[in-house]
């Protein structure tokens, strides 16, 4: 796609709204669905990676120091990571806080 989705007019669409570009679902910002976001306390984190495994969005990754963080462009704030993190290193906070 040559333009960002929000700038496409009906004339720009392919026949039958076919998508010709592979993998463009990555442009879809699911992060704006979120009402809570995860906060990672690296003092408690043991780098077990359970948050990474359980994240249904696949948006948790490991940084250079080996700690985990969520990509907030995609994170929907479901809280599964916080629930599964047994050392209690992840807590969910309201977006407006």
């Amino acid at each position: 796609m040559t333009k960002p989705e929000g700038e496409l007019t009906w004339r720009d669409l392919e026949i039958g709204s076919i998508v010709t570009e592979a993998g463009n679902a990555s442009q879809y910002q699911t992060g704006d669905w979120r009402s809570e976001r995860p906060i990672f306390d690296n003092d408690k984190c043991i780098k077990c990676g359970l948050c990474y495994i359980f994240c249904p969005e696949g948006c948790i990754g490991q940084n250079a120091e080996g700690y985990f963080e969520a990509d907030l462009f995609y994170c929907k704030g479901c809280g599964i990571c916080a629930r599964e993190c047994w050392p209690k290193a992840i807590s969910m906070v309201q977006e407006e806080e």
């Binding site: 709204s17 076919i18 998508v19 592979a22």
Partner: peptide, 11 residues
């Protein structure tokens, strides 16, 4: 190509 893709409110 992808046919019948997801079409969010923006499109």
């Amino acid at each position: 190509v992808t046919m019948g893709a997801f079409g969010p409110p923006i499109i």
